[in-house]
Amino acid sequence: MQFDIRPVTVPERLGTPESADFEAYTETTAVVEESVWGHRRFAYDAAQLLPMFRDDRYTGRQALAAWEGERCIGRADVLWEQGDGARTAEITVGVVPDARGRGLGSELLRRAERHARDAGREVFTGYSDIPLSSLELPGPRLEAPDGTGSMPTAALGASFATRHGYRLAQLERVSGLAVTGRLDEFRALLAERLAGRGAAAAGYRLTGWTDHAPDELLDSLAVAHASMATDVPAGGLTVDEEVWDAARVRAGELRAVDGERTTLVQAAIAPDGSVAGYTELSLPSNSASAFQWDTIVLGPHRGHGLGMLLKLGNLVRLGETAPDHTDVFTWNADENEHMLAINIALGFTLRGMSAEWQRDGDAGSAGTGATSGS
């Protein structure tokens, strides 16, 4: 098979001749996502992706696309933290089903890793998704370094990752929650928790907002965002520190709005007025699904039941402000027993897993476990 791999030019706007390659690359990403999960709910569309590519102040990003004639048949992304001392790059690769098995994935990954090295990164990570239907495939299994989870080596992406020198560094559970008709239930649970002897009695309070954080919370919210990189279970992954300040928080908010995503945030405020923890729900304009992104309670404030309060508070806000969203999806490290227990208590059920892979230094040839991604 003859194919041409070239960088994807980031356009000023969509719907122009200059944006055709970017839009084709985005559609290929969605095709790959659908081939794994059976739906496109986890795929970003071009309008959602464009603001992420256009703002490289805090994270660098490069997309590559593979072409067979005029058809885009594969893609790769390289994502890296811009801060001093950062060592890692995340590489995501996808090849459309009818073009797999001909060496295109390996070539995409070789090019992507070369770009990562040129950006000064020496540790490469990637992921592969395992839908629920594939979790119990017969044959040998790989054990996660932390937690109790394992995955079949026959799962899509696993043989690709190990063949290219990657090791399984972490397993994440992909969970879903149906929320339609549960608003009164969530309100009652929240009221019961607030009336207890936990967080409220210790002087904590909840506050929420949509898209734009209150100015007075920006500095402590930035501290909480930075903690998301280093204070959550990472298994065997190398994780770079992230430098956050008020400007970076505002930049993230603007990217979400520009990408047609509404963000519901619920924060726990400590007695001194600082952010003790927060949680986010991302609501794409083109989907009936909501996505649970960050949830963290900072170390000094743990032990008061804030995690459950935060999630309940945001589920109530979701039901009140966006009742057309029918379900919530979330990703959690398999070893994160506390957060998983909260999710299970709320009714989240397992929908699949994501395997996180890592290759250190220059050992072996280029590759990741990703045959899907967004």
Rank of each mutant, 00 (worst) to 15 (best):
V32W: 04
W357V: 06
V239Q: 09
G181W: 02
A65M: 10
Q358C: 02
A363C: 00
G94V: 07
A370F: 03
A161Y: 03
Y25K: 07
L315D: 03
Y204V: 10
R250W: 03
V179A: 02
Y166I: 01
P7V: 02
Y127H: 13
G236F: 03
L264D: 01
L171C: 04
L340N: 14
E107I: 05
R71L: 12
R173D: 13
S372L: 01
D294C: 08
R114E: 13
R250E: 12
T207E: 15
Q48K: 05
F186M: 10
P131W: 07
W331G: 09
D360Q: 07
A200C: 09
R40T: 10
T180P: 00
V174I: 13
L49I: 01
A224F: 04
S274I: 03
G157T: 06
D129A: 12
L264G: 04
A234S: 15
P51I: 00
Y58S: 15
W67E: 09
F348P: 10
D77V: 05
R117N: 02
E113K: 04
F160N: 10
L306S: 08
L108T: 11
R205E: 14
A363Y: 01
D258K: 12
P214N: 11
T326R: 10
A251S: 15
P284I: 02
L206T: 05
L135K: 01
S227N: 11
R71A: 15
L309A: 12
L135A: 09
P7K: 05
T162Y: 01
G196H: 10
R141A: 08
A267M: 07
V265Y: 12
G307Q: 08
R302G: 07
E335H: 06
P145W: 09
E185W: 11
A229G: 06
L183K: 10
G165E: 03
R100G: 11
L283S: 04
A119Y: 00
M339V: 07
A256T: 01
G103M: 07
R250Q: 13
I344C: 00
A345K: 13
A224W: 04
L298D: 02
S354Y: 00
L104W: 06
